[in-house]
Simulated scan of single mutants.
Amino acid sequence: MNEQPYLIPADRVIFEEEIKKSLFITQLAHTPRIESAKAFIEQVKLQHAAARHNCWGFVAGRPDDSLLWGFSDDGEPSGTAGKPILAQLSGSGIGEMTAVVTRYSGGIKLGTGGLVKAYGGGVQQALKQVQTIEKKITTQLQLRLDYSLMPLVQSLMVQYQVTQLDAKFEHRIDLLVEIDIREADVFKQTLVNKTGAKVEIKPKHI
């Protein structure tokens, strides 16, 4: 598993341009999974149901994970729309992103080279407007501890930027926490050392 963080889009972006009387509308959105990518594509298709073509490409995970890529020419000549869209997305270094380029045809043929340039170029322009945030790869841990250890554990959580997701206070305390996966082993070892191995630590099975 790749533990390095990667960039994802913070907001949706729309870029429009007219080329030889055809209107091209490029929409980019954050889509963390293939299901959300397909849902966004369907949403745009409904929004622009009158358009002749809604061509698309997606990178539904890490930017370098080609198993989670997809594209479609949606009726344009093969290789003129979906591939240029995907090429721009996969080359951007940004993950979890889908682009849909809607074309309202103006009756003037663009030719295969013109189409490649129009679809790829629209995504390229939209990518220039994308604001990104860093997505850290995290893991969840379940901690069980005595009440007397809570102040120490809380201070270690602050030190390692651990987020508390849930807590149950019964005869002991059960905490569900989330941490950057690159810090998890050091955090667990520090817990063991500082508490004399008095904290039970289990991975959370998601």
Score class of each variant (00 low, 15 high):
G121F: 08
G121V: 09
G122I: 06
G122Y: 01
G122R: 01
V123P: 03
V123H: 01
V123A: 05
Q124H: 10
Q124S: 14
L127D: 03
L127T: 09
K128M: 13
K128H: 12
K128E: 15
Q129V: 03
Q129A: 14
V130A: 08
Q131Y: 02
Q131C: 06
T132I: 06
I133T: 12
I133K: 14
I133E: 14
E134D: 02
K135T: 09
K135I: 05
K136N: 10
T138R: 12
T138W: 03
T139W: 02
Q140N: 13
Q140V: 02
L141H: 07
L141C: 04
L141R: 11
Q142V: 13
Q142M: 09
Q142K: 12
L143T: 05
L143E: 09
L143V: 05
R144C: 00
R144W: 09
R144N: 09
R144P: 00
L145Y: 04
Y147S: 03
S148A: 15
S148L: 07
S148M: 11
P151M: 08
P151D: 11
L152W: 00
L152A: 08
V153F: 04
Q154A: 10
Q154P: 00
Q154H: 13
S155K: 15
L156Q: 13
L156A: 05
M157H: 06
V158C: 00
Q159I: 04
Q159D: 13
Y160D: 08
Y160I: 07
Y160A: 10
Y160C: 04
Q161K: 13
Q161I: 04
V162A: 10
V162F: 08
T163D: 10
T163G: 00
T163Q: 12
T163S: 09
L165P: 04
L165V: 10
D166H: 11
A167P: 01
A167Q: 14
K168E: 12
F169H: 14
F169D: 06
F169E: 03
E170G: 02
E170A: 10
E170D: 10
H171F: 03
I173V: 15
I173P: 08
D174L: 10
L176N: 05
L176V: 05
V177E: 05
E178S: 13
E178D: 04
D180V: 07
D180E: 11
D180R: 04
I181Q: 11
I181P: 01
R182E: 05
E183H: 14
E183Y: 04
A184I: 02
V186C: 12
V186G: 03
V186R: 15
V186L: 15
V186Y: 07
F187I: 11
K188L: 05
Q189E: 15
Q189A: 15
Q189S: 14
L191K: 06
V192C: 02
V192L: 10
N193L: 08
T195M: 12
T195S: 13
G196V: 10
A197N: 15
A197Q: 14
